[in-house]
Amino acid sequence: MSDQLSDSAERLLASQVTRDVLRAAEGGTWPAALWAAVEEAGFTAALLPEESGGFGASAAEAFAIVGAAAAHAAPIPLAETMLAGRLLADAGLSVPDGVLTLAPVRRREQLTLTLDGGAWRLAGTATRVPWGRQAAAIAALAEGPEGPMIACASAGTFTVSNGRNVAGEPRDAVTFEGVVEAATTQVTIEYVRAAGAALRTAQIAGALSRILAVTTAYVQTRVQFGRPIGKFQAIQQNMAVLAGQAAAAGAAADMAADSLANGLTAFAAGAAKARAGEAASLVAALSHQAHGAIGFTQEYELHHLTRRLWAWRDEFGNEAEWNEVVGRAALRAGGDGLWPAITAAA
């Protein structure tokens, strides 16, 4: 079942995410046809419970779809829409159609909700919000009068100042000022960031599997000194390292999906993101080294993947941030408690 779903995602994305779509997206054009196809296929609802419009997919299946999209560098907020919808559904709010995203995504940013004549009014600014400009609604975590709340801020209740990450994906500053739907929540900013980290882990893993395939094919066809460069041991040893890192990121993504399915812990999701982030750095470097100058060009596809890796490894917490979370948990567990903590989480 998992394979069927990810196979159909793979087929759809392979046909829809063309070079032209990628180039246009870099220039700021929203890939409307691609998004419509993804929405039509139902992929955006993969993390939703069935009563909120989901189709009963497992977290692992949802992550496989996210990974497939990342493998094609699909320039759409699929992971964000999945996660924002899940946050809204978990809070008992209805999940709007269309592009969704979430805010805040950075530490130390806080939105506030106040009661204004019987309606909830959301205020504050969140930076680096993925695809803020495109959102039909934003799942916003905010401080209410009696604790944390989730708000569903529809387009029109916020203004956007455009920004982008190094891959050219929209990362916008969003200022909220309007009346919204809201509900109390148990969710914290740490939870939101851990969930975001889990999905970025799936994206990194997807991109790494694609880079492994692309780079393997390249070293088998590029000829120097009279033979394919993949015949040289120096290249073979690097390719083996690349494959190992790609496999590690894949296992990290599985670990993150398992954690999300079982209540999500910062320990497991953080370890996954930190490990995948480290793999991303190594693989980006090794794949560019294997490709030589062609990999450094606009025309060749590698940079669509590697520039995303350089963005994603820092979004929702970099390796240092998450490794510290994991390390503090390990230290709390102590020498005798460390192994039981590991077996319980992974």
Partner: peptide
Amino acid sequence: RAAIALGRLTSHIMVLRRL
């Protein structure tokens, strides 16, 4: 610094264990 370094080793072990 120690927490980050120990966390990194732990993260690696968790992923290796899955593999």
